[in-house]
Design a protein around this nucleic acid. Structure first.
Length: 935
DNA sequence: CTAATCACG
DNA sequence: GACGTACGTGATTAGC
C-alpha cells in the first residue's frame, strides 16, 4: 500500500498530550531505579502505545498513523486572547522531564511524532483529518477531547480510548445538543472554564443548544439577539457579542496549519525490535520489555533490578545479589562480635533489628540482635534463646554458647551511641525502646518506615514485608514460619538458632537495602525536610513518653466498673420488660428486629447487609418521639461502652512493674500526620459526657506531683485562617475575639454582644464543617435543620469568606494534578481516589480539603514536642501524653508554673521559624491531681 | 474477618 | 442534572 494516500486508506491520529496526562494520573509516581528519574507517565504512555499497536490490527486497521503533541503552552491563540488557557495549573515538576521521553517512546515504536511551534495538537489533528478526507480516505481521532468533536463527520470519527467507544455524529449531538458542524457555536457561547474560553456569562451548553437550534447558527443568533424573549439572556448576548466572537475564534479548528510533510509519510510500519527494546531497556521497563521481546521472539533484555550506588560514602555495591539468608553469621564469640563492631565503625552505618519475645516493647524481653552493614553482610547475635519444646526435660533452659546479654550490650553501646555512626531501623522506635530499657539511647538514627511514610505514597503500606516486596522485589520469610500462629504460637526465644539467624539477619539486610533504596528518593520527592524535621526526631521523644507512662488509679476504675455493671443489669431488665422478650441488647441485629419488626416502629433498612441501623442517631429520633425502649438502650450503650472499653480494659493495661499505663504511638499511623495511640488508645478517653469524664479522674499524678495539660485553642481554624488567607478570620484571631460568635455576627448580621447561644452554635458547626469539606446535607444533619436552610447558611458563609472557596478549589486542583497535597511545613499527604469518578470521588475531595489543615496542625504540635525535651530539661517534669492538640505533663508540685511558662512558649512558637503564621497560636493550661482536673 | 457502633480531636 | 454526603483515628462486640 505504498501508493499515495487516498480512497481505502485510514489515518489514525493519536492525541499524544491526552495519553501523557492520562498515564501520569493513572499511575503512581514511579521512578527509574538507577537514578530516580520520574518515569511513571512514560511508562503508562509506552504501555498505551504497545496496547494500541497490538490492537490496531484487524478489520478496521489503520494504514497510516501519527501521534500529535502540543509543542508549548504559547500558541497563536494567545495573540487572539491573552488569557487563553491561563488558569491551567502549572505542570507538576515530575512530569516536565518526561515530555521529551514520550516523544522518544513514540519514535521507538516507529510511529510518526508530530509537533509544531505555536500550534496546538488540535490544529494539527484538524489539518491532517481535513487532508485525509479531501484525499478520499478516512481519519479516526483517538481522543475524547470535546474540542475535537467539531471535526466529526464525513469520513472523520473519534475513538474514546478509555471507553473504547466510537464517537460519531450521534454521540456529538448527544453531548452538545447540535451536530458536529455547530459544535463551535455552542462552545463559543458556553465557553470553557478548563481552557479559559470566556463565552457568554450565564449560558451553558443546554441554553446554547436551545438558542442555536432556534436560530440556526451563531451569526444569525447574534444578528437577531434583540428578538430573544428572556430579557437577561437577550442583554447578555448583546453585551457580550464581541466576547462570544472571540471565543469562537479560540475554539474553531482550521485546516490550514502549515505542514512540512505529506500524509504518505505517515504510513504504518512495524517497529524495529532493536530500537524499541533499546528504549525500553534504557527506561528500565521490565515487564513491557519482556512482553515486547516475547512478541518479537527476541531475548528479553537484562535490566538490573538493583538501585545504583547512591551519593553516599557507604558503597551500596553496584550489583546486589539476591538476598541470601543462608550465609549469615551467628555471633557467639567475643572475637566475632569485636570484628563486627570494628567493621561497623569502618562503614559508619549499620542496619539493626532486635528480636524479642513479644510485640509490646514494655513487656517483651530482648532475645537477640541482628546487624547488617551491606548486601550479604549480616549477622545475628543470640542473647536469650532457650531450648525448644521438643525436649521435656531441657525445655526452657537457656541455650549454651550464647554471649551474655550484658557483655554484648556493653560492647555495642559505644557504637550505638556514637554520633558518627548511623543506626538504621525499620520502625526503629521499637528497637530504640528495647535498647533504652537496657540503658542505650541510640543516635543518630534513620527509619525506613518513616521514609516511606514521608514520601506519602498511597501505593503500599509502610510495613517492612510489603515495602520489601514492592521496593526490592524480595519477599522476606514470614515470622509465622518460625513461631507459628494461634494457640501453638511460640515466642522467638524458642526458635532454634539455625532458623533465627536467617530470619533476623534477613530483616536487618532488608532494612539496609530499603535504606539504600529509599533515602536517595527523599530528595526527588521533596520530602527530605519533612522526614528530617517532622518524622525522624519524633522517635526518641515518643519513646521516652511511652516509657514514662501515666499513673492510673486502678481502684477507682474497678469501683466504676462495679457501678456500671449494676446499672447495666438494671437497664437490661427494664429493656427486656419493655420489649416483652429477652434478647442481647448488645446485638444491633436483635435490637433492630425487636424495634422495627416486633414493635413496628418506623425506620427503614440500611446498607448492603440489609440490616436495620440502630445507631445513636436512629435511636435518638425514636426516643424523641417518646419511645422508652430506645432511650433505655442508649443509656445502656453508653454505660456498656464506658465499662468495656475504658474502666475494664484500662485496668488490664496497667504495667506490673511501673504501675502505670504505657500507650504506644504510631508515627506513621494516620494519613494526615497525626499520631495514633494504641494498646491502649489514650487519645479517646471520654470527656464529652459527665459520666465519661469521671474516667479521667483515674489518670493521676504520682505523689508530690501534678498533671499539667496544655492545649492549643482552635488550632485547625487558625491554620485555616492562615493557609486560606482569610482576612476576617485572621483579624478576629488577632483581636482575640470569640471566633464562632464572630462568624455568626458576619453571617447573620447580629452583634457579638449578647448573642443567642443557638446562633453561635450554628456558626460553630459551620466553622467545623468548612474544615471537613462541608455539604448542605451534612450540616443539616448535624444541626438537625432543613437542608435548604443549611445550604443557605453555607452560601452565606462562602459569600462572607470567599477565600475559603478559592482555597478549596486550589487544593483540589493540586491534589488532582499531583496525587497528593502538602501542608505548609512540606508534609506530603497522598490523596488516593481524587481522580476517580463515582461516589468515592466526593469523599476523596473532602479528605483533600481537610488534609492540609489537619496535617499542618499535626505538624505544629510535632514541632513543639520535638523541642520540648530541651526546653524543659532543667525542670522536674515529664511529657506523658499527646492528644492531637493537647500535651499532658507530670510535674513536681513546685514547678508547675515554670513548666507551663516554658511549654507554652514552645507550643505557641512551634511553627517558627519554618512558617511565620499570620495568626497567633494560643495555648490554654490547666493543673490538677487528675487529668479530669487538669484539662 | 468484617460490619456496626461509639469514644476522642 | 443526579448522587451521596463532614475529616482523622482505635477498641469492642456480634455474627458470619
Amino acid at each position: 500500500m505504498s501508493n499515495a494516500f487516498g480512497k481505502g486508506h485510514h489515518l489514525h491520529l493519536i492525541d499524544g498530550s491526552a495519553f501523557i496526562f492520562r498515564a501520569f494520573h493513572a499511575l503512581p509516581p514511579l521512578t527509574r531505579k538507577s537514578d530516580g528519574l520520574p518515569i511513571g507517565a512514560v511508562a503508562g504512555f509506552s504501555n498505551m502505545l504497545w496496547k494500541y499497536v497490538q490492537d490496531a490490527k484487524g478489520a478496521d486497521a489503520p494504514t497510516h498513523v501519527a501521534v500529535i503533541f502540543d509543542h508549548s503552552a504559547k500558541t497563536f491563540r494567545n495573540d487572539i486572547f491573552a488569557d487563553y488557557k491561563a488558569n491551567r495549573p502549572p505542570l507538576p515538576e515530575e512530569l516536565k522531564p518526561q515530555f521529551p521521553l514520550t516523544r522518544d517512546a513514540t519514535r521507538a515504536f516507529n510511529i510518526a511524532c508530530i509537533e509544531i511551534e505555536s500550534y496546538e495538537a488540535d490544529d494539527i489533528i484538524a489539518t491532517l483529518a481535513c487532508q485525509a478526507r479531501e484525499a478520499g480516505g478516512r481519519a479516526t481521532i483517538i481522543s475524547s477531547d470535546k474540542d475535537l468533536m467539531q471535526l466529526v463527520g464525513d469520513g472523520v470519527t473519534m475513538l474514546d480510548p478509555i471507553k473504547n467507544k466510537e464517537i460519531g455524529p450521534e454521540e456529538v449531538e448527544e453531548k452538545f445538543g447540535v451536530g458536529p458542524d455547530r459544535v463551535v457555536d455552542i462552545q463559543a457561547l458556553a465557553g470553557d472554564s478548563v481552557d479559559n474560553v470566556p463565552g457568554a456569562p450565564g449560558i451553558g451548553i443546554k441554553t446554547a443548544a436551545l438558542l442555536i437550534n432556534e436560530y440556526g447558527d451563531l451569526e444569525n443568533l447574534l444578528a437577531n439577539a434583540d428578538q430573544i424573549k428572556q430579557p437577561k439572556r437577550r442583554q447578555t448576548l448583546i453585551d457580550f457579542a464581541d466576547q462570544i466572537r472571540v471565543s469562537k475564534r479560540l475554539v474553531q479548528l482550521d485546516c490550514d496549519t502549515p505542514l512540512d510533510f505529506s500524509l504518505d509519510s505517515l504510513e504504518i510500519a512495524d517497529p524495529d525490535p532493536e530500537a524499541l527494546l533499546g528504549f525500553l531497556t534504557e527506561m528500565e521497563f521490565r515487564t513491557l520489555s519482556n512482553r515486547v521481546a516475547e512478541k518479537f521472539g527476541a531475548e528479553a533484555p537484562a535490566i538490573p533490578d538493583k538501585p545504583a550506588a547512591s551519593s553516599t560514602d557507604i558503597a551500596a555495591g553496584p550489583d546486589w545479589p539476591p538476598v541470601d539468608t543462608a550465609n549469615y553469621q551467628t555471633v557467639t564469640t567475643e572475637a566475632e562480635l569485636d570484628t563486627w563492631i570494628a567493621s561497623i565503625a569502618g562503614f559508619g552505618a549499620v542496619a539493626i533489628d532486635t528480636e524479642t519475645t513479644g510485640l509490646n516493647e514494655m513487656t517483651a524481653d530482648l532475645v537477640g540482635i541482628s546487624l547488617c552493614t551491606g548486601a550479604g553482610m549480616a549477622c545475628y547475635i543470640p542473647l536469650a534463646h532457650v531450648s525448644g519444646g521438643g525436649d521435656l526435660f531441657d525445655s526452657g533452659a537457656r541455650l549454651d554458647g550464647q554471649l551474655a546479654l550484658d557483655l554484648v550490650l556493653a560492647k555495642l553501646k559505644p557504637i550505638l551511641e556514637d554520633t558518627a555512626i548511623l543506626k538504621v531501623g525499620h520502625n526503629i522506635k521499637y528497637d530504640w525502646k528495647m535498647l533504652a530499657r537496657h540503658g542505650i539511647r541510640m543516635a543518630p538514627i534513620e527509619d525506613t518506615m518513616l521514609m516511606s511514610y514521608a514520601m506519602g505514597s498511597d501505593l503500599f503500606s509502610h510495613g517492612m514485608d510489603g515495602l520489601s516486596e514492592r521496593v526490592l522485589g524480595h519477599k522476606p520469610m514470614p515470622i509465622k514460619d518460625l513461631i507459628g500462629s494461634g494457640r501453638s504460637q511460640i515466642t522467638f526465644d524458642q526458635v532454634p538458632l539455625d532458623k533465627a539467624t536467617p530470619y533476623a539477619g534477613e530483616d536487618a539486610e532488608v532494612t539496609w537495602r530499603l535504606w539504600q533504596t529509599l533515602r536517595p528518593q527523599l530528595s526527588p520527592t521533596a520530602v527530605t525536610t519533612a522526614y528530617e524535621t517532622l518524622e525522624r526526631p519524633m522517635v526518641p521523644v515518643l519513646a521516652d513518653m511511652e516509657m514514662a507512662g501515666i499513673k492510673v488509679d486502678q481502684e477507682h476504675l474497678s469501683r466504676m466498673s462495679n457501678v456500671f455493671a449494676q446499672r447495666m443489669a438494671a437497664l437490661e431488665d427494664e429493656i427486656h420488660g419493655l420489649a416483652g422478650a429477652k434478647f442481647n441488647v448488645g446485638s444491633p441485629k436483635q435490637l433492630g428486629e425487636i424495634l422495627f419488626d416486633q414493635m413496628g416502629l418506623q425506620g427503614g433498612k440500611q446498607g448492603k447487609t440489609g440490616a436495620y441501623s440502630t445507631s445513636a442517631d436512629v435511636l435518638e429520633d425514636l426516643a424523641a418521639e417518646g419511645h422508652d425502649l430506645p432511650a433505655r438502650v442508649l443509656d445502656w450503650r453508653q454505660i456498656s461502652k464506658l465499662k468495656s472499653t475504658y474502666t475494664d480494659a484500662l485496668q488490664t493495661h496497667v504495667n506490673a512493674d511501673s504501675g502505670r499505663v504505657h500507650t504506644s504511638y504510631a508515627i506513621a499511623g494516620a494519613q494526615t500526620g497525626r499520631l495514633a495511640s494504641t494498646e491502649p488508645n489514650l487519645q479517646n478517653i471520654p470527656i464529652r459526657t459527665e459520666e465519661g469524664r469521671r474516667i479521667r479522674e483515674a489518670f493521676i499524678a504520682t505523689p508530690g506531683h501534678k498533671l499539667v495539660s496544655l492545649d492549643y485553642s482552635q488550632i485547625e481554624l487558625r491554620v485555616l485562617a492562615h493557609v486560606a488567607d482569610i482576612p476576617a478570620l485572621k483579624e478576629a484571631f488577632r483581636e482575640g475575639i470569640d471566633i464562632h460568635a464572630m462568624t455568626a455576627s458576619q453571617m447573620f448580621g447580629v452583634p457579638v454582644e449578647g448573642m443567642d447561644p443557638m446562633i453561635r452554635r450554628q456558626a460553630k458547626a459551620i466553622n467545623f464543617g468548612v474544615i471537613y469539606g462541608i455539604s448542605g446535607f451534612g450540616l443539616s444533619r448535624n444541626l438537625r435543620i432543613p437542608r435548604a436552610e443549611a445550604q443557605a447558611f453555607i452560601d452565606t458563609y462562602f459569600e462572607r469568606f470567599p477565600e475559603i472557596r478559592a482555597y478549596m478549589d486550589q487544593t483540589i486542583a493540586n491534589a488532582k494534578r499531583d496525587g497528593f497535597v502538602r501542608t505548609i511545613f512540606g508534609r506530603r499527604i497522598p490523596t488516593p481516589g481524587i481522580n476517580s469518578s463515582g461516589p468515592q470521588a466526593g469523599g476523596a475531595r473532602r479528605a483533600a480539603i481537610n488534609a492540609p489543615i489537619q496535617g499542618a496542625a499535626a505538624d505544629i504540635i510535632r514541632r513543639a514536642m520535638i523541642r520540648m525535651p530541651d526546653a524543659i530539661a532543667g525542670l522536674p517534669a515529664k511529657m506523658l501524653l499527646q492528644v492531637h492538640d493537647e500535651l499532658v505533663f507530670e510535674v513536681e508540685d513546685g514547678a508547675t508554673d515554670r513548666l507551663i511558662d516554658k511549654a507554652r512558649t514552645v507550643m505557641e512558637s512551634a511553627a517558627e521559624p519554618a512558617v511565620q503564621l499570620s495568626v497567633p497560636l494560643v495555648v490554654d493550661a490547666g493543673i490538677g491531681n487528675s487529668w479530669a482536673e487538669a484539662h
